[in-house]
Structures are given as C-alpha cells and as structure tokens.
Simulated scan of single mutants.
Amino acid sequence: MQRSIFEPRRFEYQGSHHYFIPTRLATALRTPLPIFLVGLRGTGKTTLLYSMSWKQRLSNSAYREQLTEQHGDPFYDRVIGVYTKLPESKIEGIGVWLGELDELKGQLFSLYIDLLYVELLVDAVANLSVHEVIENSASAERELVATLIEDVFYAPVWASLLKRHSCSTLKDLARLVNRGRRELEHAAEMHSKFEDAQERFRPPQFGEFGKCVATSLGHYCNGQSAVDTEAAQNSWVFRVCMDEGENLSHDQQLVVNSMYRLSRWPLFFAIAYVEMPDVRSTFKRNLTLTDADRKTIALTTQTDSEFREYVEGVVNIRAKSEFGEEATKFSVESLLGKMSLNRILDTNGTAALQRRVATVLVMTAQSGFLHSIGKLPVVF
C-alpha cells in the first residue's frame, strides 16, 4: 500500500532511509565541536545522527548517490560517524551497580562509554580501509595496533584477554574491546566489588581511553605525517553519535560533560536529548563547559524560512524515492502563494475577514485534513 509522503514516520520503523538535512543543520553538524542535539520526539534527531553514520554513507545506495551528486563524494566532509542508542546498551545496569557516582566511580562509567564507541570506531576504520575509502598499508595497520596495545591497553583486563586472543589487525582490536566491555557488563551483573573492578580495568581520567584510541586512529586515517590539529585541512575526524541521552542520570550526565570538556581532535561527540540537560557542570568544580567547548542545536527553534525549507525538503526527498525523478517538486509558495494567515489574523485583515479565515481553519482541522498530511501547520 502506498504511503502518503506527508505522513509522520518513525526512523526506526523504516526499512530504507532517505535524508534531507537543512542547510543550517548541515553547517552546524560540520562544526568541529562536541554537540548537544535537543528536540521533541519526531523532530528528526535520530535521522540527523544517522546521517553521519559511515555505514549509511557507504551502504545506503540512495544516500551515497545523493551525497555524491551534491558534493562529489559521500565522505566529502571527511567525517567518520558511528551511531549507538544508549538504552540498547547495558548503561542502566552499570548505573544500578555503581550507584551514586563519585569521581572514581565516574571514571569507570566514563570508561564504559568509551568502550561502547571505541569498538564502533575501530570497526569503522577497518571496514573503510577494506573498501579503500581510507588508504593505508597492512604494515601501518599492524604497527598501529601494536602501538595501541602497548600505550593504551595496559590494564590487567587487557593483559588477561591478550593471553587468550591474538590481536594484530583492527578487526582483532574491535573484538578485543568488545570482550573487555562484556567483562565490565558481567561485573555489573554479578554486583562485583567496585574496588576489584577498578583494579582490573584501571580507568583513566574522564574520556582518556577513547581519546587516546581516536587520536591514534586519526593519525592512521590521515597518513603517518598528518598534522594533529583541528585546523588541518581535509583531515579525517570522528563523530560519535549517541541517541536518547535523556536516559542518563544527573551524575552520568556530569560524566558526559566531563568527557566533552576534555575531548580533543579528532574526536567529537554528538548526543541527542528530548529536553535540554545541564550542559555546563562537570565532575570537577573548577571545570565547566562554555560555548567554546560545545555547540547546542535546538530543533524546536526554527525561523519560518528554515521550517519551510525543512518541510519542502523532506516532502521532495520522499516524493523522489516514491515516484522517481519525474516527481513534481513540492513548493509551499507555488501551492498556497505568499499569503500569510498569521498576518491576516493578527493585523492586516478586517474583522469580518479574520472571522472567515478562523472559521475555515476550524473546519479544516475538524475535517481531519491536517492529520492526513502529518499535522503540518496551516500557517506558512
């Protein structure tokens, strides 16, 4: 059965995905800063986060063709994005086990967040290397993995795992991180003593584990002689996208804020929330987040022209996917003209005209028309 191109759709329930990213948001997402993405349900948070996923850019043929047509390359911005939905992890069980967080417990929680996305990052770089999106040699890969094991994977848990599992490639490293994460989850499930887990995992400062891995991966992706500053032209960076951040407790949010504050090139976070969290406080009293440390994108604060661009863009992308290139381009102005019902109701119309317009709006709402087109506003 053919679906209306105007109806509301939930990202998770769609088999294939088509993207329209408004100009304002596309520019904001390319900002070399960690991002807090805030919007009510249905405002497109998941779509925006998923649009940065390397898997979508590589494997979604429609999206790949769209980016190639617009920019010449699906990875035109040199962003390697990974996506995870926080409630699908064991974050709740970890939280119950740790209880109220102090700085030491916060560092272990931070390590768990690191383990969630580091596995995804390593796997992303491995796959993009196979598909020759990233160019480097097998010897460089082996050297990278050996260096990471020596410099970053020094805690007892890694030594124990490396005795049982060889690790010489990026795929091996991704599996190693997965095993370490599952050991930490098992410790939480068994309600192990925190002191035992702390000794086994030896968590570093907030976000330090993931930051070190990402820095080494950045050097690998950009070539051995790449400069390591955010000012580097055309250099690969990583965008770690985490959805449904509202599931974090206040203490856990402070951990995330600390990770934001201490992050560095080439690692940039983007976490989505239904409501604005505390985006200033961290676990360290004298360490706060400012506008220089992060960017906040509110999806509920759009100008009329931005909202019109968003509506038209989504409808036209859907129309193209449903009907092909011959689909008629949808334009609010060509359909309804430049009339502003707001202005008529507020100032410009006579009292009689205002009453007539208001009556039409009420009748339209009662007819179910607005619901059939996805509850789009009548006022453009």
Rank of each mutant, 00 (worst) to 15 (best):
I373C: 11
R175C: 00
M339V: 15
Q2C: 05
R239H: 07
T27R: 14
T328K: 15
N286C: 09
V79G: 02
D77Q: 09
A140M: 11
D291G: 15
G207F: 02
E189K: 14
A140D: 15
L170N: 08
D228F: 11
V255N: 07
E208L: 01
Q252F: 06
T290H: 06
V152I: 15
R239V: 03
I35G: 06
A365Y: 12
S258C: 06
I80V: 12
A358Q: 14
A270S: 15
E150V: 09
Q224M: 11
K284C: 10
T303I: 00
F323W: 14
V122K: 06
P22K: 08
N316G: 07
A188R: 09
L98N: 10
H71K: 10
A214H: 05
L128V: 05
L254D: 02
I80P: 01
L176E: 03
G15F: 09
I113W: 02
S16I: 11
A197W: 00
Q224F: 03
G207L: 07
Y83A: 02
N178R: 14
W265L: 00
G324N: 02
E69L: 14
R10A: 15
K375S: 11
G313V: 04
L267I: 00
L49M: 09
K375W: 13
W158S: 05
E65K: 15
G223Q: 05
S258T: 04
E143W: 05
S263P: 04
R308S: 07
W158E: 05
H219M: 12
I317C: 10
T31Q: 10
P377K: 05
V118N: 04
N222W: 01
K338C: 09
A365T: 11
H191D: 14
G72N: 01
F330S: 04
G99S: 11
L108W: 10
T364C: 08
P204K: 13
P22A: 07
R175G: 04
G99E: 12
T288K: 11
K338F: 10
Q14V: 10
A140F: 04
Y154T: 13
R280N: 13
L254Y: 07
L115W: 03
L361G: 06
L101A: 01
S51A: 08
F153V: 04
G39P: 00
S249M: 11
I94F: 00
M363N: 13
E306L: 09
E306C: 03
G81L: 03
V379H: 12
K105M: 12
A292R: 15
S216D: 09
D278R: 01
F238N: 04
F283E: 06
G72P: 01
F269H: 05
S4G: 11
L184T: 09
E312T: 06
D304W: 10
L148A: 04
L67H: 03
R181S: 05
W54L: 08
G42P: 03
V213M: 02
